[in-house]
Design a protein around this nucleic acid. Structure first.
Length: 280
DNA sequence: CGTACACCCTGGCCGC
DNA sequence: TGCGGCCAGGGTGTAC
């Protein structure tokens, strides 16, 4: 379920495998992802050294030694499978949804695996990244200082859309997805149906730290799954996590002193889980 | 201009 | 065991 914390975890897992390494080979096995991969992508990547990898919103970006940037999005079901040489063990056979294979020197290998093919990759020029169509419209990172109650008050001013939809809007804040929006609204005891414009003052002041807290906690959980890989073998993109309200329709609300029942409703085509009793 | 919704694709799960 | 229906993380294009 790649939302911001999962993508951050993938980013941290990829760094030790790819940073400073030359892409000795790149193989595109299926170019028809959410958007078609550039025809010459493999050729343009082969032989390049990866200088560093970062994350912006739910995008991963690998900065190469020739000024190119490989931009990657995991979509809904994307994973990065890592493999490192281990004695005489041969690398595992490639599977059905292994679409792009990066050989990273030392025999290390990163495989992009995405059954639903909502993920995608493209190349850009590092110097033009700020103005790139993927990045120019994005709001602030939710974990940055720029994302604070004052900012949120301004960003939501006059918005007559439900707060749930506003928080999913990447132009307002970048990287939140369906699960963490539900979790943060639950933690802040704010109804997902409340008009965005009415989330001001004390509500905004409650909401901002809750958003940061649910993301921080999830990133921490992702970090422990990384350590569990021992070295670098493993599957990056999803980790086990228990939610306080997401997916808990019909269960008792876990807020202290609340005896409500978690309800599910559909907002702009997506499931929202919330407690109608304590979220106002 | 802002908001609502269908859609891209595959697999897993549930009920019959 | 098989099959149809429904559901799922995201983002974009199109229609009001």
């Amino acid at each position: 379920m790649p939302e911001l914390p999962e993508v951050e975890t993938v980013c941290r897992g990829l760094r030790p495998v790819l940073e400073g390494r030359v892409l000795t080979d790149v193989q595109v096995r299926r170019p028809d992802l959410r958007f078609p991969l550039p025809d010459d992508m493999a050729d343009r990547l082969r032989g390049r050294r990866v200088e560093r990898i970062d994350r912006r919103a739910k995008y991963l970006r690998a900065f190469l030694d020739d000024g190119q940037v490989l931009i990657m999005h995991l979509g809904m079901s994307g994973r990065m499978n890592l493999w490192a040489p281990n004695g005489d063990e041969p690398p595992p056979a490639l599977e059905k949804h292994d679409h792009v294979v990066f050989e990273a020197g030392n025999g290390s290998r990163v495989v992009f695996h995405d059954p639903r093919r909502f993920g995608y990759m493209t190349l850009a020029v590092a110097a033009e990244l700020e103005g790139h169509p993927y990045f120019a419209p994005l709001g602030p990172e939710p974990l940055s200082d720029a994302f604070n109650a004052d900012y949120l008050n301004t960003a939501l001013y006059g918005k007559r859309t439900p707060i749930k939809a506003a928080l999913l809007d990447q132009r307002i804040v970048a990287g939140l997805g369906n699960i963490y929006v539900c979790e943060a609204l639950f933690g802040a005891r704010i109804s997902p149906k409340r008009l965005a414009a009415s989330v001001v003052g004390k509500r905004a002041e409650r909401l901002v730290p809750k958003i940061k807290a649910v993301l921080d906690r999830a990133i921490e959980a992702g970090g422990s799954t990384l350590r569990d890989y021992a070295q670098v073998d493993g599957e990056l993109g999803y980790f086990q996590h228990s939610w306080t309200v997401y997916g808990r329709e019909g269960e008792a609300c876990t807020s202290a002193g609340c005896d409500g029942i978690v309800k599910r409703l559909v907002q702009s085509g997506r499931s929202t889980f919330y407690c109608p009793k304590c979220q106002r």
